[in-house]
């Protein structure tokens, strides 16, 4: 008994999906990114200039964005 989609599944047996970051390191990575974001935001808070907005604000925002996604996964809400 076979269906077209079952054949598709069988054909893809060599390529199981692996996430970029495994479950074991999600918390560590999320924490490091969120902490980095906090540190950068603090430095920006001490010296709020237009240059710092791009030099510190952009990496802090990126770190918070990815850190938040990994942290929410690490605590069990898999998004």
């Amino acid at each position: 008994m076979s269906s077209p989609l079952l054949d598709v599944w069988e054909a893809a047996s060599a390529s199981p999906y692996t996430p970029a970051v495994g479950k074991g390191v999600q918390f560590t990575l999320g924490f490091v990114l969120l902490f980095t974001s906090l540190v950068l935001a603090t430095i920006f808070g001490l010296n709020r200039s237009f240059v710092n907005l791009s030099v510190l604000g952009v990496p802090a925002s990126l770190a918070f964005g990815f850190g938040a996604v990994y942290m929410i996964c690490a605590v069990g809400v898999y998004v």
């Binding site: 802090a60 918070f64 964005g65 990815f66």
Partner: peptide, 11 residues
Amino acid sequence: RKPIVITLGVF
């Protein structure tokens, strides 16, 4: 989409 949306919000 998810990290970029949060990034833009924080920025």
